[in-house]
Amino acid sequence: MRRRSVSSFVYVASLLLSIPLFAHHGNTAYDTSKAVVLKGATVTKFVWGNPHTFLMFDVKDDKGNVVHWAGEAGSPSSLGLLGWSKDSVQPGEVITVYMYQSKTGRTVGRLNRIVLADGTVLKDSALGYREP
């Protein structure tokens, strides 16, 4: 298994641009002009913590190789207002992830939203979420 930069298996969806919001953590590292969409993502770890919650997951690329990804989201306090909890997502679940990737091309980023297998949409807080 290995990490790879974004490749053809990633469908890039353009999202509405909006004025960046200031939060107590920066978003400088991420390309917030567009979100990558990662379907069939298998959750490997979910950390409900401060300063930021983050999600780790695996996605197969177009050659069948498993690529490790990680995406951060807001703090538990801010995500809690949006319907998330410590138990919102469990390792082994298969979900769809919308994420702003690092400008370095590494497979880390800021979540926009995740969609659970039952269709539940969990949006990131103000720094990550934009309406599609």
Partner: peptide
């Protein structure tokens, strides 16, 4: 958890490089 976050997200995200 914060150290895990730094190693998993913040440092690989590459803010300093950017």
């Amino acid at each position: 958890e914060a150290i895990d976050y730094l190693n998993t997200i913040a440092i690989p995200a590459g803010q300093d490089e950017i």
